[in-house]
Structure formats: structure tokens, C-alpha cells
Design a protein around this nucleic acid. Structure first.
Length: 133
DNA sequence: CAGATGACTCCCA
DNA sequence: CTGGGAGCCATCT
């Protein structure tokens, strides 16, 4: 139906997350920005907590982390999985965003599916983390 | 139908 | 650093 049920926010969120490549990470806010339409970081978090069974295998939920590059989940082996994918954490248990932060979907893909692209980010924050290296 | 809950982020004390 | 409140979707009592 053209009802929101088929275009549910969660479905779109899952679709975007599926675009995050292995070895990269994105923040809840990033996903929300790409989805657009009033989507918020909270929604992304809620959606990830309720991934349908048939989607959990295709949606790389583990690549979604909080804005500080830290893991928001408790109990789940999210960090372990990310390290397996090549993600490196610093001494503060945070992902080195300068190296692993996903830049967003391609303009073509976003346009083809009605999504947004990520706005340019400042390098200062990321440069700061690089110095820890 | 109302209330509670959950993998966020921002702002203020 | 800690703690509380606001803002919002979907699902389960």
C-alpha cells in the first residue's frame, strides 16, 4: 500500500544501513541525515533494536555507532565484530573516525532511491583523533 | 486506548 | 565526570 507501512521509516533506515561497506562505520546521525524526512538519530537507534529476523542478516547493524565513535550497545559483541572487519579502536574505546567513517552513499544511489547525501564535515575533529595515532 | 520501553543527541546544572 | 529532560517511531503490555 502507499500507506506509510510500506515506506516505513524503519525500512528506509535499514536500506541505508545496508549501504555501509565492510570495514567502515557510520553514526546514528549520519543514517538519519541520509534517510531525511524528519528522521532522527533516535529513530535509527530504535530501528536497529528491532531489526526483523529476515533483515538482521543483511543489515550490518554493528557498523552503526554513536557520534563519539563509541559503542552504544551493551552485552553485544559489537566491538569484536568491528575489529574483525578491520576497524581499529583507540585507548578510549572509540573508533578512529578519520579512517573508518563512511562518507555516505553515492550521489547516484541516493538520488535513485530518494535519499540524501551527507554534508561535508570539518576536518578538525578528525585531525584531532589522528594525532592520537 | 493509554503507558512503558529502547542500540541517540543536545543542552543545562 | 554525573544526572535529568526534551524530542520522536514501532511494538508490547
Amino acid at each position: 500500500m502507499q500507506n506509510t507501512s510500506e515506506y516505513m521509516l524503519y525500512q528506509r533506515i535499514y536500506q541505508v544501513i545496508e549501504q555501509v561497506p565492510c570495514g567502515m562505520v557510520a553514526t546514528y546521525g549520519d543514517i538519519a541525515t541520509i534517510v531525511g524526512g524528519g528522521c532522527d538519530a533516535r529513530m535509527v537507534g530504535y530501528a536497529l533494536n528491532e531489526i526483523p529476523k529476515d533483515r538482521v542478516e543483511s543489515v550490518p547493524w554493528q557498523r552503526i555507532i554513536n557520534k563519539e565513535g563509541g559503542i552504544s550497545t551493551r552485552g553485544l559483541a559489537q566491538r569484536q565484530i568491528l575489529e574483525d572487519e578491520g576497524i581499529v579502536f583507540n585507548a578510549q574505546e572509540r573508533v578512529i573516525m578519520a579512517r573508518f567513517h563512511w562518507a555516505g552513499p553515492s550521489t547516484e544511489w541516493a538520488a535513485a532511491h530518494g535519499f540524501q547525501t551527507l554534508p561535508p564535515r570539518d576536518d578538525e575533529d578528525e585531525a584531532e583523533q589522528l594525532s592520537l595515532f
